[in-house]
Every structure is written in structure tokens, then in C-alpha cells.
């Protein structure tokens, strides 16, 4: 294992650590804005893992969509909405925590053992094309319908969001 391999492994561990730390921060912090920060850190770690999985394009899209769009919308929702801190986090402690944390740890251990026991088939031998050209060709040939449906879904989501927030308040 050469020096560059060692460097790559270190970067990989750093991205895994970012993902794990961000996920823990996102669910355990008391302040809602830190939750978005934790989610953003986790998304950044996942983007780095995408790079290791051979797709620089998906890495960029992850940063662009998750960090650039989703996190900004969430921050915007927190700032525009009115979020009293006590109400937001009054349920973070409680008797169910003693059940929830062991249940989640057990679920991770179970999934880990399932992943470990499964015998995965060997990767295909034929040369495979990870390039952006192949992705674009698939998007516009085989998956053109899904591509168009995603555009329609996003358009409907935008219009629906505008309609939902501009609905008149019911006097009560």
C-alpha cells in the first residue's frame, strides 16, 4: 500500500467520520439550527463517499441539491417559522429514550450482521462506463420518462408550496 493509497484511505475515513458525526449532531442537538448544521455535515460526508464510489457528478449534485437547496430551504423554514426552543426540544429527554437508543443500536447491529453474512455476487468483469456521458445518455434514452416526471414533480411541488403558504388563515 503506497503513500497515495494511505492518503486516500485517510480521506475516506474522514468522510465516514463526517457522516457519522453529522448524523449524531442532527438528532441529538438541542438547538434546531444546529440540527440543520449536522444534517449538512452528514450530507457533505455522503457527497465525499459518492466521490469514492466513482461518481464525481453525483458528488457535485449532492453538494448542489442537498447542501445548496435543501439545507437553505430548511434554514429558511426555521427562520421564517416561529419556533420556540422549549417546544421544539421538550421531548428530547424522557423515559422513552432508554428504549429508543438500545432499539436503534440493536437495529444497527442487526443490519451490520445481515450485511456481513450475505454473500454478494462477484462484480461483473465487463468494462463499465462510469462517465457522465453514459449517465446523460441513460437519462435521455432509457429513463427519459422518469426525467420528465421529476421535472413535473418539482414544478408541482413549487406551485403547491406557494398555494399552501398563501392560503388564507382561518379565524379561530
Amino acid at each position: 500500500m503506497g503513500a497515495s493509497d494511505f492518503f486516500l484511505e485517510t480521506v475516506f475515513y474522514a468522510f465516514v467520520a463526517l457522516t457519522v458525526f453529522g448524523g449524531l449532531l442532527a438528532v441529538r442537538t438541542q438547538i434546531l439550527m444546529y440540527t440543520v448544521l449536522g444534517a449538512a455535515v452528514a450530507f457533505l460526508g455522503v457527497a465525499g463517499l459518492f466521490m469514492f464510489l466513482g461518481s464525481l457528478f453525483l458528488c457535485m449534485m449532492q453538494i448542489l441539491i442537498y447542501l445548496g437547496a435543501i439545507c437553505i430551504v430548511l434554514v429558511f423554514g426555521i427562520m421564517v417559522g416561529y419556533t420556540p426552543r422549549q417546544v421544539a426540544e421538550q421531548g428530547i429527554r424522557g423515559q422513552n429514550l432508554l428504549l429508543a437508543v438500545p432499539a436503534c443500536i440493536a437495529a444497527v447491529v442487526l443490519l451490520r450482521s445481515a450485511v456481513g453474512r450475505t454473500v454478494w455476487p462477484a462484480p461483473p468483469d465487463a468494462p463499465r462506463d462510469f462517465s457522465l456521458v453514459a449517465v446523460g445518455r441513460q437519462l435521455l434514452e432509457n429513463y427519459a420518462l422518469a426525467f420528465e416526471l421529476i421535472s413535473v414533480l418539482l414544478l408541482i411541488a413549487i406551485i403547491g408550496a406557494i398555494i399552501v403558504v398563501t392560503v388564507k388563515e382561518d379565524p379561530r
Binding site: L74, I78, V87, G91, I92, A100
Partner: peptide, 10 residues
């Protein structure tokens, strides 16, 4: 575990 909608969404 979250008690706010934004936290659940995240």
C-alpha cells in the same frame, strides 16, 4: 424522537 416538524423533516 424529535418534537418539532422541522427536526422530523431533517
Amino acid at each position: 424522537q424529535r418534537r418539532s416538524f422541522i427536526g422530523m423533516l431533517i
